[in-house]
Design a protein around this nucleic acid. Structure first.
Lengths: 224, 224
DNA sequence: ACCGCTTTTTGAACGTGTTCAAAAAGACGG
DNA sequence: CCGTCTTTTTGAACACGTTCAAAAAGCGGT
């Protein structure tokens, strides 16, 4: 790692610290550069703009989420339990940045960004998020077979999206309402999966999987 | 309506036209003011900032949606049909602003805004959106009774949210993929409602309604 | 040590959204 | 018509994100 990487890292550290302490708006590019010991213009040599630094924060949070989940997931638990683990872990990782949540989400919505989970071209960021749910599904018992089992991670990713949205707009202390939501939604989804196995639900499940199939065909926008 | 209202309206018209033609970033406050025939500073006497003009666009789109739905909804149709009508009408109304979608959504996410459907204090904007779904439910046959019938509009509003999100990130020509999604999701939700009436689904439905009850208690964030 | 070339760094400049003190216009009673 | 108070309008100013030409630093070959 040369001098170049050092400057880049200094900028990231300064930016992320200021984001956490001061929020997005109060963190000026001049301040970031000053705290990293470089000129304001130099920051633009390493990052395309202020938003690129937000994206850096986004990928680091996501990586931290994956690492934390790997340490907490236990094989053989119920799907409801594993799902709750993944969701709660995500909330733990994001917690220090709650005041920053809106900006983070806005950045993710910008589909031109390479780290946006919705960007049509960059499958990587999206799959990384879905991978977490696949872990939760694969390591839970009883196993879920058939087409539903294949597509379940994608569907649970949508649930994750919903929880994240709720977290962003959750003004309760410590975002406890979102915690509550996770604790209630996880068993509910577990029940739904069991219900999906009954004969009476068969035609519905068939249509649902067909829908997911159709909407995830190549060239699709991100949401399945 | 005095001179004051005229200037305000001129600003709105100029802003909305420029938003449609040039997009958000290329529409500068100086340009809006010039096109309305006032000074740049004067615009801030009528609107708190650029975002307030976006919110104005938002409420007008929502009002147009309500008006258009009232003309298109037919009583006695299936829930799937009425649901598709509401969703397609929404897409029709928003169509001219698709390039603007991201900005619109970002504005809605800012929970401090009085028109945000997620703002904890302003129930009006949220209820207005849910009202549409209540219309679709109430005017469809067969009727849906019980607690599920009461809370269904709120749940369908979540589906509406998802469709809107898909629309924003949908890059297909004319957003035809989102149209397809609506055509597929509406009958699927219809099936789900019928499934919810069967005895085997009873415990799941009970838990679901209890969850919606709990999450919509007073003081809640917007998402049920 | 010098040259030529690339990579990195700088600081001034531009256009933007927004603020604000002051000017202008209006409203109203005497 | 004047004086006073409020409402409206102005244009200069500010801080911000971003751009860019030019300077500085690094680097390999001779």
């Amino acid at each position: 790692m040369g001098k170049t990487e050092e400057t880049r890292e200094k900028l990231v550290v300064a930016a992320l610290a200021s984001f956490r302490e001061r929020g997005y708006d109060a963190t000026t590019m001049r301040l970031i550069a000053a705290e990293a010991g470089v000129s304001q213009g130099n920051a633009y040599y390493y990052f395309e703009g202020k938003e690129a630094l937000v994206q850096e924060l986004y990928v680091r949070i996501q990586a931290e989420h994956r690492a934390a989940v790997a340490g907490r997931l236990r094989s053989g638990a119920s799907l409801a339990h594993n799902l709750a683990t993944v969701l709660h872990t995500g909330l733990d990782v994001m917690a220090p940045y709650h005041s920053f949540g809106t900006t983070l989400l806005q950045s993710a919505l910008r589909t031109t960004s390479p780290v946006s989970p919705f960007a049509p071209d960059s499958q990587a960021a999206r799959e990384a998020a879905i991978w977490l749910m696949r872990e939760a599904v694969d390591r839970s018992r009883p196993r879920i077979g058939g087409r539903l089992g294949e597509q379940l991670p994608r569907l649970l990713w949508l649930a994750y999206l919903g929880v994240t949205l709720h977290w962003v707009i959750d003004g309760s202390p410590g975002q406890q309402r979102t915690r509550e939501l996770v604790d209630r939604v996880s068993p509910l989804l577990g029940k739904a999966i069991r219900l999906a196995g009954t004969p009476v639900a068969k035609p519905f499940v068939t249509d649902l999987t067909a829908l997911v199939d159709a909407m995830t065909a190549p060239g699709r926008a991100g949401t399945p």
